[in-house]
């Protein structure tokens, strides 16, 4: 028979629960993101030494996905509501800013915050409707949303229907032409990641995480879950809409099959899963990996069908063997380097 000393049992119980919960290292490496940002801001100086347009494009492309994936993560990662329809907000931002740019010549970079707000308003209203359901119903409603918007945009003559609209290109010399968009996306990405960090560590973020764990209990604990969720949806739509705004001008056209293809949604989701859903650094790492991987794949194999196959395959393998993503897995093994630990 085990010895049964009261104090011993109580102490042991504490240690047992602490072991189950796992403890967190709270140290931060603030220098790291600042260094990365400084490096990215200085990167275009390379253009003085040769043609680095492709590199600029890659960083810009990655930054745009950092904005979108981190935005998606606020709803999908923090609150646990998986949306497969976030490209709708990408389209709303893109079309809103693109149309004003086409008609009045106001740069989409200036319009981006406004486009984000418009997307957020749509997000708020759509959230009011679709966030009444959870689980599979929510995911399905988000898919239906894309289908509805695709049909609407395809048939809306004012915005050019399925052919879309061409937007004027800027008249900067070719080695500088990408830079306004480059800086816009890098700044947006930095802002998004910062916002995501602040949200993660706010009372609001705590509420969202509680919702993702157990919504009913959160509600009985006094969290206004409905407002929290809808707000998360709106904020998440804001970032995705902002990215969409500048993306149209960068490509010089807006067209439903640029914004409203399923691959855009999938990329956001996959980046978060790959990097670590619900973490701050996860979407960033996921975006970098997936963009690099995509470039490699397109460069070697070309065909978009194989690209779809490969994306699906990675997502499956990731979900099956690596569901916590890079950041989540490392954190669990207690091997997460401090520069990536922002949770």
């Amino acid at each position: 028979m085990t010895s049964l000393d009261t104090n011993e049992v109580i102490t042991a119980r504490k240690a047992y629960y602490a072991g189950l919960a796992g403890e967190a290292d709270k140290g931060r490496s603030v220098w790291f993101p600042i260094a990365v940002l400084a490096l990215l801001l200085a990167l275009p100086a390379l253009q003085f030494t040769g043609n680095y347009n492709y590199l600029i494009h890659l960083v810009l492309f990655t930054a745009s996905y950092v904005v979108m994936a981190s935005g998606w993560n606020i709803l999908g990662g923090f609150a646990g509501y998986i949306s497969l329809g976030h490209n709708v907000f990408f389209a709303i931002g893109g079309y809103f800013a693109g149309m004003i740019f086409a008609r009045y010549g106001i740069s989409t970079i200036i319009l981006a915050p406004l486009a984000g707000l418009v997307a957020a308003v749509f997000g708020y209203v759509i959230g009011l409707i679709t966030l009444r359901v959870r689980g599979p119903s929510f995911i399905i409603s988000s898919l239906a949303l894309v289908m509805i918007f695709k049909i609407l945009f395809d048939n809306w003559d004012f915005v050019g229907g399925s052919n879309g609209l061409s937007l004027p290109a800027n008249d900067l010399p070719v080695q500088w032409a990408k830079l306004p968009y480059y800086y816009a996306f890098v700044v947006m990405a930095a802002f998004t990641v910062w916002a995501s960090y602040r949200i993660r560590h706010s009372k609001f973020g705590l509420g969202l995480r509680a919702i993702s764990k157990d919504e009913i209990k959160s509600e009985s604990a006094g969290i206004n879950t409905r407002f929290y969720k809808v707000l998360a949806f709106a904020i998440s739509a804001f970032f995705v809409g902002m990215a969409g705004a500048v993306w149209g001008e960068y490509l010089t056209y807006i067209r439903p099959n640029i914004f409203l293809i399923i691959l855009v949604s999938v990329n956001m989701v996959l980046m978060c899963i790959l990097g670590g859903k619900g973490t701050v650094a996860g979407p960033v790492i996921g975006a970098i990996l997936l963009v690099v991987f995509n470039e490699f794949f397109v460069a070697t194999l070309g065909a978009s069908e194989i690209n779809i196959f490969a994306t699906g395959m990675i997502m499956m393998l990731c979900l099956m063997f690596f569901p916590l993503g890079i950041v989540g897995t490392l954190a669990r093994l207690k091997k997460l380097p401090r520069i990536l630990n922002w949770d």
């Binding site: 646990g80 998986i82 989701v269 069908e305 779809i308 699906g312 997502m315």
Partner: peptide, 19 residues
């Protein structure tokens, strides 16, 4: 959610393979 995403990924795999 993970299972839904898994079937979603599978849909892409099948689509890509057929395509």
């Amino acid at each position: 959610e993970m299972t839904v995403l898994l079937t979603f990924a599978l849909a892409m795999v099948v689509e890509g393979a057929l395509g």
